[in-house]
């Protein structure tokens, strides 16, 4: 009796084990196949997200999703993209993923600067750009000996015009700590190294409706035209010693700072989200400090060329 019992039990056990092994194998095969198949779309989605954010900071893409260019008066008008080149258009056109990536690759290139502000390329420094971008995203590129920065090339006039275009700005990746978790964004500045073109925040876990407003176009629209180097009361700016960064004040800039030069480097805070605002201020301060030598060089070159 006990023998047949033992036999049944071991038969049951071996059936159970067999069942689990086969089930695990089937699950693993299904998932691995799916993961491999979807790897490319996933990589593209990530790259698209990052590219979009940089284009938004550079004001090449509007936060609402359509391309834009500046007309002669300096106003932004909707644009259409063909082969990576933008031309003014009658109405707002929403581009496809491929078009966005094409414009991104035409207009924005990454390079490195060191602690003295000397620029070098990824090739010369023998660093793999993809790996570098991935590895130091969380700790911050500004903490590395060679810091990541992007140049914005001008909109080409035609397909033949792709080489040697003037540089119309730079994009700096910004890392910081918000209220709940790390915040990641971009800051685009003009070739004079001082004036802001635009900003974006692409990764933040702040309180929805409050701190998360830093990702809203309305709050971000205050930044274009602000100066990252604070002007001294006498109207001049000392680039080696001036405070560097944008301050998010508590309340409205007009009420808190009035007409002082500090107001040129400050933006309104968000009611109920002071700590997130502080996080943003600190992020700009800490990250831009690492790029100061490069920005000083930029400004000097820009002055020299008139």
């Amino acid at each position: 009796m006990s023998e047949s019992n033992a036999a049944t039990v071991s038969k049951q056990n071996s059936y159970t084990i067999l069942f689990m092994v086969i089930l695990s194998l089937i699950c693993a095969v299904i998932l691995s196949t799916l993961a491999s198949a979807l790897r490319e779309p996933q990589e593209m989605a990530k790259e698209l997200d990052r590219s979009k954010q940089m284009l938004i900071a550079s004001r090449i893409l509007s936060p609402y999703g359509y391309f834009q260019v500046q007309n002669e008066k300096g106003e932004y008008v909707p644009a259409i993209a063909k082969g990576g080149i933008l031309a003014p258009a009658e109405k707002k056109i929403f581009p496809s993923k491929e078009q966005i990536l094409e414009v991104y690759r035409t207009r924005i290139q990454g390079f490195l600067v060191d602690a003295k502000g000397v620029a070098t390329s990824f090739q010369k420094a023998d660093i793999d750009e993809q790996k570098y971008v991935q590895d130091f995203r969380k700790t911050g590129y500004y903490q590395e000996p060679l810091k990541l920065i992007y140049r914005i090339s001008a909109n080409p006039k035609s397909q033949k015009d792709l080489q040697d275009r003037p540089i119309v700005g730079y994009v700096i990746p910004i890392n910081g700590m918000g209220l709940w978790d790390a915040i990641y964004g971009y800051l685009a500045i003009e070739p004079n190294g001082d004036t802001v073109i635009g900003i974006s925040w692409y990764d933040q876990k702040e309180t929805p409706g409050l701190g998360a407003n830093i990702a809203e176009p309305e709050w971000q629209s205050q930044f274009p035209g602000k100066r990252i180097f604070q002007e001294s009361p006498d109207g001049k700016t000392n680039f080696s010693t001036a405070p560097l960064g944008i301050t998010v004040v508590k309340g409205k800039v007009g009420e808190v700072l009035g007409n002082s030069p500090k107001a040129l480097s400050a933006v309104d805070g968000m009611a109920g989200a002071t700590l997130t605002g502080n996080g943003v201020t600190d992020a700009y301060r800490m990250v831009l400090a690492a790029y100061r030598p490069f920005l000083i060089n930029l400004h000097a070159k820009n002055q020299a060329s008139g």
């Binding site: 089930l23 993961a35 996933q42 698209l48």
Partner: peptide, 22 residues
Amino acid sequence: TQLAIISVFVIIIDQFLQAYFF
């Protein structure tokens, strides 16, 4: 077994969202 089956479908959904609704 139920947990394994459920996990497989959840992972399928997760991978799809990451690819197409980032």
